[in-house]
């Protein structure tokens, strides 16, 4: 079984789909380290790291019914620092028309508590997921953003937002910061067919939503947010982070396979 990876397309009744995540901060493309931004409370900052898990992807039909990408092929770790990871490819999708998509931001509770044998590829705690896993309070970090701000009161003016927590297990309940994103294609329709041209959904991921929203985060007051109750406010903010940009096609070229697999393939 391969997680976070792609199998060869079944040529007959199915097709493939590519999803591209474009990272922004507000209306400007996100540029790591070198660019200064401002949040809603007026704090100035730069971003040195931005990454998140996307999982449990569904495609939605006009009548509301869905096609659920099989679990084992539905976990992706998207990193700003790795271009290949920002385009994912889904295969073996039954031919059909779809009007939207939805996915989970993070990792569901079942997989968060599953045995080590089910944690391959981007879920490998000693591999790809090594910086997205809490060892002492076992679970994945769903969304992680770090950077510096003159307003930060933490060491080296750093700020760190590591948001996780899947609800806990047994009698050890924790916060549940699992959130879902739903993307509507508006007037456009996604057609999955068996053709050489793979359709591509482009989604904007706006990192400013981590800081601005229902709760505007003041970096001076909350330079580090991890396992505490405040993390729920940030999760509420970032659930609106994803929005629809457009439909297109992934140009079939030599780079295609590399793109499709990206960091989501098991690392050697």
């Amino acid at each position: 079984m391969l997680l976070c990876a792609i199998s060869v397309a079944n040529a007959q009744k199915t097709g493939s789909l590519s999803i591209r995540f474009d990272h922004f901060l507000g209306n400007e493309p996100l540029i790591l380290n070198d660019k200064k931004y401002k949040n809603a409370t007026g704090d100035e900052f730069n971003v040195s790291l931005f990454q998140y898990f996307v999982s449990n992807i569904k495609l939605i039909r006009k009548d509301g019914s869905t096609y659920d990408i099989p679990q084992d092929k539905s976990y992706f770790l998207i990193r700003e620092s790795n271009k290949d990871s920002k385009t994912i490819t889904l295969t073996d999708i039954p031919k059909g028309k779809f009007t939207g998509t939805s996915f989970l931001i993070g990792i569901d509770s079942t997989r968060s508590t599953s045995e080590i044998g089910y944690r391959k590829g981007c879920l490998d705690v000693g591999g790809d997921a090594k910086d997205m896993y809490w060892a002492w309070n076992s679970g994945y970090i769903f969304v992680k953003m770090e950077g510096t701000s003159p307003q930060s009161t933490a060491k080296n003016n750093m700020f760190m937002y590591h948001i996780g927590l899947f609800g806990g297990i047994g009698n050890k309940k924790t916060l549940n910061n699992i959130r879902y994103a739903t993307i509507d294609f508006g007037k456009e329709t996604l057609r999955i067919k068996d053709s050489k041209n793979i359709p591509q959904i482009t989604i904007k991921a706006d990192a400013s939503k981590i800081l601005n929203g229902e709760t505007n985060i003041e970096i001076a007051k909350n330079p580090t947010v991890m396992g505490g109750p405040f993390s729920a406010k940030i999760a509420e903010n970032y659930k609106t982070m994803f929005s629809f940009v457009g439909l297109g096609t992934l140009v079939a070229n030599a780079d295609k396979d590399k793109n499709a697999l990206g960091m989501n393939q098991e690392q050697k």
Partner: peptide
């Protein structure tokens, strides 16, 4: 559950905690 606070629910995952602490 493992550790004084029970933060790890499966013995297989415990070792990651001392190794990375």
């Amino acid at each position: 559950s493992f550790g004084w606070d029970g933060g790890v629910h499966d013995l297989d995952f415990f070792a990651v905690s001392p190794i990375t602490n």
